[in-house]
C-alpha cells in the first residue's frame, strides 16, 4: 500500500516539477546504437547470458534481449554495455 502511494507521489512530482524520470523513478536508462550496441544504466544484476539470449534484472521487472553473438563489453555495478546483433527487446513486468 505504502509503496504504491510512493510511486504515485513520484509520478506526480516528475510531472509537476519537470524532473527527469529515470533519476526520480529509479528507472533504467537504455540507449541503443543501431542494432549492435545496447547500453543499460541502472541495472540490478544479470539473470541469463548466452550467445543468443540476454536477461537482466531491472528495478521493476526484467529486460529480455534476443539476438546473435552477444558479448558483454563492459559490466560495472550500475551500467552495462552489450554488443552483438540485437533482434528483439522485451520488457517483462512483474
Amino acid at each position: 500500500m505504502g509503496k504504491k502511494w510512493m510511486q504515485t507521489l513520484k509520478k506526480w512530482m516528475t510531472k509537476r516539477m519537470d524532473l527527469p524520470e529515470d533519476v526520480l523513478m529509479d528507472f533504467p536508462r537504455i540507449t541503443m546504437v543501431g542494432p549492435i550496441h545496447l547500453y543499460i544504466e541502472n541495472h540490478k544484476g544479470l539473470l541469463t547470458f548466452t550467445d543468443e539470449e540476454f536477461r537482466v534484472l531491472l528495478n521493476q521487472g526484467q529486460l529480455l534481449v534476443k539476438g546473435k553473438g552477444f558479448v558483454i563489453k563492459t559490466i560495472l555495478p550500475e551500467e552495462l554495455l552489450l554488443e552483438g546483433r540485437i533482434e528483439q527487446i522485451f520488457f517483462i513486468r512483474d
Binding site: G45, I72, K73
Partner: peptide, 10 residues
C-alpha cells in the same frame, strides 16, 4: 559486480 569489480569482454 556487487563487490565493485569491473569486468569486460564477457
Amino acid at each position: 559486480i556487487k563487490d565493485q569489480v569491473p569486468l569486460w569482454n564477457m
